[in-house]
Design a protein around this nucleic acid. Structure first.
Lengths: 239, 239
DNA sequence: ATACTTAGTGTACACTGTACGCATTCTTTA
DNA sequence: TAAAGAATGCGTACAGTGTACACTAAGTAT
């Protein structure tokens, strides 16, 4: 009975993290070139084994921090992948997370430069093979992000504190893979009253500078209490 | 290095399954009285250890079938719970699934009668303590169901093949915990054209019998291709 | 026959989504 | 310094959907 019970304790758990960034044009994901077997030299999601005494959530945060130096960023669990055959070296389940970071804050930690951590356009990565079942994991995270970004104000996590409405629109378009109508997008976002008009403008651009805004999370929370329905649905705003 | 690697393989994985049913009045969940330590005699979600050679998805299906005899029912992974302290007897992570079954098809397998599998009203269970972190798991599954039932036609999984519009409305009300306006609900559902009018009526009721409908999944899929937006949002239909 | 119970229907109004074009403000360069 | 270029930023009209709301119809039970 006891030995029977113990026989179950032979799994390993990893956390794999789909780190999304946005460079003003495209949605990007951070991949690492594997330096060990299996899948040596293939591109893979950053991930690690969970340690014996470590909470799952802590493990996800640790990976992100070790790699990027960033703490307290947006991090969400998506799905656990547990096919018996998914890891050639044993029974390893992986819990997939995705995180949203401001790509400008980001700086790869020296320890990882050797492992070649690189940003890829999401649209490109979908065409190239990845280690393990990481392609499936990536797709699951993209799908989750698409759903979530429409109904939760998480898109702002990918932008600098100060941003223009054009940048925000570009972000939504690259996540949702859909063109949006400029005027309707502005109208909708501004009508929610969740942005602070910073009374500042872009500088150094070769055209009329755009106004800068920031996301007012306190106000957002108050409005949600009052029944605000955050919803950026692209069928509603096709260009 | 190898020993180091092996040291990670000391986790156990369980699957816990929140089995939802609907009796025409209330949303219910199937719980079992535990017959072993820890948490002996407490109510708990049905669950099991995942076996060495078993896919995660198969394990979830196996639990459901062993308990209810039902195969190929709606089953969805929700979240993995992995606090280091969550299981007093070792490092056990659990992957939470929920499933939707037609309560009339259901018959508890004899092996489980001894373990007292019983349906509870969801609203009651939320007030009583459960084993482990099963309360958290239950809440996560309820929340997921609420979100999902609004945008996917999964509510029908909880109903018999033939149902009345009043039953369907009652189902939504008990899941969403919100009253809906009868006329608007009917108008919305019928306007989607995803129900088949069976040209039959209820029998044996002490009042005007209601018409029976069934869900037309093929038609639904066709309409989705054409851009149908399934959305039963309660702010839109408050009573 | 009457009372009772639930099923089933329609309309008016407000609001939101959607489509769409032009003037404005800044930089660059001729 | 004038003109061209580039992106910003604004408004309106129409269609469609959401929402509120009360009574009649069709059965059963007494």
């Amino acid at each position: 009975m006891t030995t029977d019970f113990n026989s179950f304790f032979q799994f390993a758990i990893t956390v794999d993290n789909v780190i999304f960034g946005f460079d003003g044009q495209d949605l990007k994901v951070l991949l690492m070139k594997r330096g060990e077997i299996p899948y040596m030299d293939d591109w893979a999601l950053p991930g690690h084994f969970v340690k014996q005494e470590e909470d799952l959530t802590s493990a996800a945060g640790r990976i992100l921090e070790e790699l990027t130096g960033l703490k307290s960023v947006y991090l969400e669990q998506v799905k656990t992948f547990g096919k018996a055959s998914r890891h050639p070296m044993g029974r390893v389940m992986t819990v997939a997370y995705y995180s949203l970071i401001n790509i400008n804050d980001f700086e790869i930690k020296p320890a990882f430069i050797a492992k070649k951590a690189t940003w890829f356009k999401v649209s490109d990565v979908l065409k190239t093979p990845l280690a393990f079942d990481h392609k499936d994991i990536l797709i699951a995270c993209i799908d989750r992000l698409k759903v979530k970004v429409k109904t939760q104000p998480i898109g702002f996590e990918l932008l600098p504190n100060k941003f223009t409405l054009t940048e925000l629109k570009q972000l939504y378009e690259s996540v949702l893979q859909h063109q949006l109508d400029k005027r309707n997008f502005r109208k909708k976002i501004l009508s929610m009253k969740i942005l602070i008009d910073l009374q500042e403008s872009q500088e150094g651009v070769a055209h009329r500078p755009a106004k800068l805004y920031s996301f007012d999370s306190e106000r957002y929370n108050r409005l949600i209490e009052d029944g605000l329905h955050f919803d950026i649905s692209y069928p509603a705003m096709q260009a």
